[in-house]
């Protein structure tokens, strides 16, 4: 592909000016950009902005936009806070040689339907911090139509939640056919479902149903799964039909809930 004008900003301010001010294309890992093979008139490489970090910020864990999938997968901070959640969810993304490249910011900005990270972040009620000084919760970001250019600085996740992840894939490295995250947060249950094949979405009805129960148990988990499958829309793609997704959604949701209640 061709990039007519390649910039390598050294500060967030400079990057902001290029991306938001001049409409340059933000380049994170670039893996997806390369696959889509667009020619770019102007690109701003975000490598040198110091955004590759995972750290605790008060009640939150902050993921710098340039933290890679491999960083998240192997992060001891994330493991302490959420157990094997991130590792389990992200280890299905291609091979390590790709996870070393692709970034948290790229996955969020792209709003990819297949994104495991979005499913997990949505269930954990994460928010996106845009440079400069604008924070938006992920749920409302995903619902809004993509608008003016923006620059993601980091993603912040409340630390007090517990969550589990389930997915169905054709082969271990393939995109998921369906992915599920079930979380218990301070505000109650949050179930999110991705790869429908549309992007991750919450299941508020399943959530409130679970909130109404003392302990979901076997039956409650199953019921919640059925409710989730009913309140969501599903579509067809190469990997599976809407019907198939609808059939396995309750199964995976129930499994995620059960595992969380163990």
């Amino acid at each position: 592909m061709e990039i007519s004008c390649y910039h390598r900003p050294r500060s967030l301010e400079e990057a902001y000016d290029l991306v938001v001010g001049q409409g340059a294309y933000p380049l994170a890992g670039g893996a997806w950009t390369l696959i889509s093979r667009k020619n770019l008139s102007s690109a701003a490489d975000l490598s040198d902005l110091g955004l590759r970090y995972i750290k605790i910020e008060g009640e939150y864990i902050a993921l710098g936009a340039m933290a890679t999938a491999r960083d998240l997968e192997t992060s001891s901070l994330l493991a302490e806070a959420f157990g094997p959640l991130f590792s389990q969810a992200l280890r299905g993304i291609a091979g390590i040689q790709i996870r070393t490249i692709v970034t948290a910011g790229g996955s969020v900005a792209g709003r990819y339907g297949f994104s495991e990270l979005l499913v997990v972040l949505l269930a954990l009620d994460a928010s996106i911090v845009f440079y400069k000084d604008r924070t938006q919760c992920l749920a409302s970001y995903l619902n809004a139509a993509p608008g003016a250019p923006f620059l993601i600085e980091k993603i912040i996740i409340p630390r007090n939640a517990k969550a589990t992840y389930q997915c169905m894939r054709q082969t271990a490295n393939d995109f998921p056919i369906l992915s599920i995250c079930a979380a218990r947060t301070s505000a109650g249950w949050r179930i999110s479902v991705g790869a429908r094949p549309q992007a991750a979405a919450l299941c508020p009805q399943a959530g409130s149903f679970l909130n109404s129960l003392e302990n979901p148990g076997e039956d409650g988990s199953k019921r919640a799964g059925l409710i989730a499958a009913q309140e969501l829309s599903f579509g067809d793609d190469l990997r599976a039909s809407a019907e198939y997704r609808r059939s396995i959604c309750p199964v995976l949701v129930a499994r995620a809930i059960r595992e969380l209640c163990l």
Binding site: I3, Y6, G30, A31, L34, I35, R70, Q97, I98, T100
Partner: peptide
């Protein structure tokens, strides 16, 4: 790349 495995088909040379 700096000791970490990367897929060189999926990364810009400029990197």
């Amino acid at each position: 790349m700096d000791g970490l495995p990367v897929a060189s088909c999926s990364i810009f040379a400029a990197r």
